[in-house]
Nucleic acid binder design. Structure first.
Length: 346
DNA sequence: AACTCGGGGGC
DNA sequence: GCCCCAGAGTT
């Protein structure tokens, strides 16, 4: 039996019952694929449920405000996915009359959709023979075939894409694609793969050579930068605080945060106090500054470690601008801010 | 080709 | 502490 058939057989016996596996509606499949980019099923699943419930059709998503979409995305990370999702929904409604594109070449034109996602949608929804290459595929194929080409190079991508395209069952591309991914996620795991029950344990090159833990090969990890964030939490007599929208490039684009003072090292009370008093926000107000968390919260992102302190600014009067405490949960915020808001309990 | 973009979980 | 996750966009 060939590898494709064996993968599909394994999948038939071992697949999880997941909500997006009970539909071929391209809108739902698209939602699931965007949500699952760089995201494990257990983390993404509740977001899939809330998005399909809140936006049952592409028209509902297109008609929403971006802030509402970001709020629903809050906590999932990689927020450009949510912004691109929303922009593409508008494009589908306005330019395509609400009809989802039905070929790989048209699907990949959507913002936020690359080779992987276009291949997944084209195969699952439209039966196109387009092989997916994701982290699971890299891992499974690199081990079974003993391929040590680095996966995060264009050469590596082409090599694995070509191999996957050769393996895919042209009669059931959707099942094959989901089978190889499920196989990578559940059996051929990064750590402690279940080789004992693997259907390929007699042919797996990596297993025979005892180099399972060396594959797949990935080139150099990026080094992590430290940043020092000081968030200024204003508290006014009329129960208001200040949130600002993050603009420009960088992390958390279009999400909200307390006014931020970034320093090049851990800042003292004196330093922050002098900078806070210079903020236009507090001109003409008497303020009292106090530190909320003496020990910095270390918020770890893939490429940054954020050493974070929250500073409380008590005002002895009202704020003309600012938002009411009761409205604070309407705003999409990074989980770092969200955790503070929850704990502070405005 | 290298860098940027989140947050959670396994070990 | 390091690596990975149903990757894509920008430089």
């Amino acid at each position: 039996m060939n590898i494709s058939k064996q993968l599909i057989n394994w999948y038939t016996d071992n697949k999880r019952d997941l909500p997006w596996r009970n539909t071929t509606n391209p809108y739902f499949i698209w939602l699931s694929e965007i949500i699952l980019q760089q995201t494990q099923v257990v983390q993404g699943r509740p977001y899939y449920d809330s998005f399909t419930a809140t936006f049952p059709t592409v028209f509902d998503l297109a008609n929403a405000e971006e802030q509402e979409v970001l709020k629903l995305w809050q906590g999932l990370g990689y927020y450009s996915r949510a912004r691109n999702l929303h922009a593409s929904a508008k494009y589908i409604v306005k330019e395509l009359d609400g009809k989802f594109p039905d070929t790989f070449d048209q699907i990949i034109k959507l913002k936020g959709v690359g080779d992987y996602t276009a291949s997944a949608i084209a195969s699952i929804c439209f039966n196109q023979v387009t092989a997916v290459v994701d982290g699971n595929v890299y891992r499974a194929l690199s081990r079974i075939y003993g391929i040590d080409t680095p996966i995060n190079t264009s050469k590596g991508f082409k090599e694995f894409k070509t191999l996957a395209q050769q393996l895919i069952d042209p009669k059931q591309p959707a099942t094959f694609n989901q089978a190889i991914m499920e196989f990578g996620a559940r059996l051929c795991k990064p750590k402690n793969p279940d080789c004992n029950s693997c259907p390929f344990n007699t042919i797996c090159v990596a297993l025979q050579k005892n180099i399972i833990s060396d594959l797949p090969v990935k080139l150099k990890t990026v080094k992590v930068k430290k940043k020092y964030f000081n968030f200024i939490v204003a508290l006014s007599k009329d129960n208001k605080t200040i949130l600002e929208k993050r603009t420009g490039s960088g992390i958390w684009q279009n999400l909200y945060q307390f006014p931020l003072i970034e320093t090049d090292k851990s800042a003292s009370h004196t330093i922050i106090e002098s900078q806070v008093k210079n903020l236009d926000l507090f001109k003409g107000h008497n303020i009292t500054l106090s530190l909320y968390n003496d020990k910095a919260i270390i918020h770890k992102l893939s490429h940054q470690h954020l050493y974070t302190k929250f500073w409380i600014v008590n005002l002895n009067d009202d704020l003309e601008s600012g938002i009411l405490f009761d409205e604070i949960t309407n705003y999409p915020v990074p989980i770092l801010i969200g955790n503070f808001i929850e704990k502070f309990n405005f």
